[in-house]
């Protein structure tokens, strides 16, 4: 009985919300975005930053401070997850050995994932991709071997150092913008020739820092959740 009442209330709420959303979206135009900012940015992003990927230009130049906040949020989330899992250690160890296919594929995949991730990070200002996507792939590259050999110790120390260093580089590049009388995180070093690997000033450097930071954070996060409650693996924690 009480289950029915709750399901009924939930259904009523969802139907009401659905009707509200449909009414809102009915009035929303599709296909001709009314936003002016995007068109203005698309028109002048190349002269301003030298990046041919305009999403990267928005992310690192026009909304650079937002991206710094985003990286900070990711850092806080990773730290909090590590803190929550830190005292864990009561559950039984589950060191299930991986199968042959996973072990062979992990050894084979590692270099390819590494190259793909590095490519996506380094070409973030030219082609689709960038620090976040490439960082996720780098994290996967370092996590797959761990999945194949669950008994191997995790060295969180290196990841922590890389993460801290990359975050510091991001902030230092931002502060360097202040030196020349500009704003925080203003693009430096000139726009260069559009389409060249070494163009778009400091944007590739920022993306490199983001890629390393995101990659080490996500890899550490996955290793922590994989090792949570496994006493044998708690020793390597930073």
């Amino acid at each position: 009985m009480k289950g029915n009442a709750r399901a009924f209330a939930s259904a009523l709420f969802l139907i009401g919300l659905g009707l509200m959303l449909v009414t809102l979206f009915e009035a929303l135009p599709f296909g001709g975005a009314p936003m002016q900012v995007g068109q203005a940015i698309a028109g002048r992003a190349l002269e301003d930053t030298g990046a041919t990927n305009i999403v990267s230009a928005v992310l690192l130049a026009y909304r650079g401070l937002d991206t710094l906040g985003e990286v900070a949020i990711l850092f806080v989330a990773a730290t909090a997850a590590g803190l929550v899992l830190g005292g864990a250690g009561r559950a039984e160890a589950q060191g299930t050995p991986a199968g042959f296919i996973l072990r062979a594929a992990a050894a084979l995949l590692f270099p390819f994932l590494l190259v793909l991730g590095a490519y996506i990070v380094i070409h973030g200002h030219l082609t689709p991709g960038g620090g976040f996507q490439g960082g996720a792939i780098l994290a996967a590259a370092f996590f797959v071997p761990l999945l194949a050999h669950p008994a191997s110790p995790v060295n969180h120390g290196v990841a922590t150092v890389v993460e801290a260093f990359a975050g510091a580089v991001f902030v230092v590049i931002g502060l360097a913008g202040l030196v020349g009388g500009g704003a925080f995180l203003v693009p430096l070093l000139g726009a260069g020739t559009p389409g060249d690997l070494f163009s778009a000033g400091s944007l590739p450097l920022l993306y490199l820092a983001i890629g390393l930071k995101v990659g080490s954070e996500l890899a550490g996060l996955m290793a922590r959740i994989a090792a949570a409650g496994d006493p044998a693996r708690q020793g390597g924690k930073a």
Partner: peptide, 16 residues
């Protein structure tokens, strides 16, 4: 860009 992020982060890392 968003498609790449969703494929790498959403389909890959979140699932793992």
């Amino acid at each position: 860009d968003v498609a790449l992020a969703e494929a790498a982060v959403g389909a890959g890392l979140s699932g793992v």
